[in-house]
Computed example of a mutant assay.
Amino acid sequence: MSSYLAKQQAAFKSDAMSAAPKVATKRNLAPPAPESAPSPAPSNASNASKSESKDPKRKREVQNVVYSQPAATGYGMEAFTQVTYVIEFLKKKNEPKTFREILEYLSQVNADERQKRLIARILLQHERVYHTPDPNLKVQSWDSGTFEHKPIINVRTKKDLIAYLQTKADAQGVSVKDLKDGWPDCEDAIDQLEAEHKILVTRTKKDNHARMVWGNDPTLHHDVDSEFQVMWHEIELPSVDELVRKLQDAGQKPASEDPSKRIKAAPKPKEKKKRAPRRGGKTTNTHMAHLLKDFSHMKR
C-alpha cells in the first residue's frame, strides 16, 4: 500500500514540475486593462450587428439628413445685420432710396431672392424706416416704392424746432441727442436760437455742449442798463450771520439756518409695557368646586 501511495506522490510531483513553465509563461503576459480605462469604441457595423442579434424586433433609427442644402443658412441674422447698415445709409443720405439702390449699397444685387425678400420685409416693418408706395403701380410688389429714414424727432430746421417746442403739452425738455438723429448739425442753430432768447438750453460742464432744450418767450427778456448793473454790484450786503440775527430779532425764521445746528430735544425714554394678567381658561371641573376651596384661613 505504501508503494502505491509513493507512486501517486511521484506522479503528482512530475506533473507539477511539467506544468510549472507553462503557468509561468501565461503569467508573464500583459496584465488586463483596468476597469476605469475606457474600452475602444466599436465600429457602427459591429454595434448594429450586436443590437440586431440581441433584439431582432428593434428597428434602427433613421436620421433625416438632407444633403441637397446646408443645415443652417443663417439668413435671419445676416438680414438683420444688413438692415442696420441700411438705416445708417438712409440716415446719412437723408433722402428716399429705392430698394434697388439699397441692394447696390449692400452689394446684394445678385443675392438669393429669398434673402432679398427678407430684407425688404424687415424694412417695411421697422419703426425707424418710412416707406412710400410707388404711385405708378396699382398693386405694390415686395420691392416697390422708396425707403426713407424716420428720425426720433422730425425736426430739421430752426422753424421746425420752435414749432415742435410750442406744440409740447408738458414742460419736459427735448434731448439734443434725439434731435441729432434727424438733424446732425443742429448745434449751430441751437446757439443762434439761444442768443435770440427763443429757447433755453442746458449744457455739459466739460465741453459746454447743448444737452437739453426748452421753449422760451423772447418778449419776457429785458436788457438791464450796464450802469445799473455796476451800481447793483457795488452795494455792500450784510454778512450771512448778521442777516440771520436780524431775522431772528424780527421773529422770522431765516432760510439759511443750518438745520444741523438746531437744538434737538432729548429723546424720551421708552416706557416698558406692562404685561396684561393672564386670563384663566374655561373651568370644566365645576362639580369639584367644593373640594377646591381655600380653607387655609381656618387654621389656628
Rank of each mutant, 00 (worst) to 15 (best):
S3E: 09
A6N: 14
Q9H: 06
Q9K: 05
A10Y: 00
A11P: 04
A16T: 00
A16M: 06
M17T: 12
K26V: 09
N28L: 14
P31I: 02
E35N: 14
A45M: 11
S49Y: 02
E52Y: 14
P56E: 09
P56C: 04
S68Y: 02
Q69M: 14
G76I: 10
Y85G: 11
I87Q: 00
K92W: 04
K92I: 02
I119K: 01
I122G: 04
P133V: 03
N136V: 05
L137V: 06
K138F: 11
W142Y: 10
T146H: 08
P151C: 04
N154W: 11
R156L: 02
R156P: 02
A163P: 06
Y164L: 01
L165E: 05
T167G: 13
D170W: 04
A171M: 13
Q172N: 15
G182R: 00
G182W: 04
D185E: 14
E187K: 04
D188Y: 13
Q192P: 02
H197F: 09
K206G: 01
D207S: 09
M212N: 13
V213D: 00
F228V: 09
M231A: 14
I235A: 10
L237S: 06
P238Y: 01
P238K: 01
P238C: 02
V244Q: 08
L247E: 11
A250C: 09
K253Q: 10
P254Y: 02
D258Y: 02
I263H: 10
A266Q: 07
P269T: 13
K272T: 08
K274F: 12
G280T: 02
T284V: 01
H290E: 12
K293W: 08
S296F: 06
M298S: 13
